[in-house]
Write a protein that binds this DNA or RNA. Sequence first.
DNA 1: ACGAGGGGCACTGTCGACAGTCGCCACGTC
DNA 2: GACGTGGCGACTGTCGACAGTGCCCCTCGT
Lengths: 219, 219
Amino acid sequence: MSIESLSALDRSTLRERSLEALRSAILSGRYRPGDHLGEVELAGSLGVSRGTVREALRHLQQEGLVTAGTRGMLRVNSLTAIEVRELFRVRAALEGLAVREIVASPRRAATAATLRAALERLSDEDEPAARIEADLGFHLLLCRLSGNSMLVEAWQRLEGRMRVAILDGSAAQAPMMARDRHAPIVDAIERGDADAAVRVVDEHMTAAAEHFAEATAAS
Amino acid sequence: MSIESLSALDRSTLRERSLEALRSAILSGRYRPGDHLGEVELAGSLGVSRGTVREALRHLQQEGLVTAGTRGMLRVNSLTAIEVRELFRVRAALEGLAVREIVASPRRAATAATLRAALERLSDEDEPAARIEADLGFHLLLCRLSGNSMLVEAWQRLEGRMRVAILDGSAAQAPMMARDRHAPIVDAIERGDADAAVRVVDEHMTAAAEHFAEATAAS
DNA sequence: ACGAGGGGCACTGTCGACAGTCGCCACGTC
DNA sequence: GACGTGGCGACTGTCGACAGTGCCCCTCGT
């Protein structure tokens, strides 16, 4: 009985609600990396059948929050320091493409303005969880504004793993998500300097990678 | 009764076999893009229960071979010409990262040799399906040899969508997969010229994108 | 004391059935 | 003839139960 039962107020499917509940249970740290996620236990906690929670778990597996162990048993995923570095390099490639497409677009000025507005939200948040949301929200917005739907999808499929990495190294990650860490990206986009923008994104990602990789290694 | 029943010879799970059967049924064109994939019909065809085929379908959905329509109904996916172009740009970014990492690696020479060997297989194949496999195999190898596991995963999550795109424009795609289209990539890697390698990959992807996008638009 | 064997336990894999919902078609009404 | 309406069929959502399979611990024999 680790997670609260599902409320029956909204009209979404039980699977969706179970998925959400499980995701937030993992992301909030209620389940630690490596913890076994038994279908029967979760079904009991959530008040749904095993089949339903099973589907939610499979979805989380695709997201990378959950990984398969022996005999199909699922457990909360955790990343090695090496994987964290790899992950951020892939992110850099993806977001590098995003800024390139944004700069090349005729709507560049409007896009830059949107991004600058989003930048503001990064300083407003104090609570760690809110900071994480603001940071990921900014980067997702960056991908969305590229107008490349496949890019957005690819990025989102990385998001789960990113959250795992952040979860592991949640201590003192605040500086990485500060406003002035992201401002140079917008600056370069505004100037229309694609190469500089890519370089800045790359540096941002490299720094973040080291930050979280060290935190992972330390834990 | 469109697909043959599952053989009970091997020891893999029914879900895995169903998944494989459905995937190959879609990829072989037995189901056309837009076709509705009913759980009951498929369960009957495959000789498994609805729950089992359901899980296989959900997996295919994540792979991008299948997409959700109204009221959760699933149908065979198809890509617009725009999405095909987007897809190949993402691929270019990913494989660009791959060649960069390969060039930067101390094992560059050995990697280049491996790739050159793989290059040979591209000319051997005559049948379209085999050519597709050889081509995708080469690019997957490229990602694998980068040593970046997250990159490989990201690329593989794009693979299903790629196959859909290829499926749509299967006519006369042969030249795109020829050996000399890929050789320049290996050449640049061998020379250790990362920028040139990235540029070559980019051009290769752009050309392929146009090729398949046009074929998609025509169909 | 220590190793082999066996039985229970805790899982997941798979299945068949019931329930709710949406679209469609025929029918009756104005 | 057009339109509302009621039943019907086809789907997916969800559930509870049975089956198979390792793992662990307990027991028994030496």
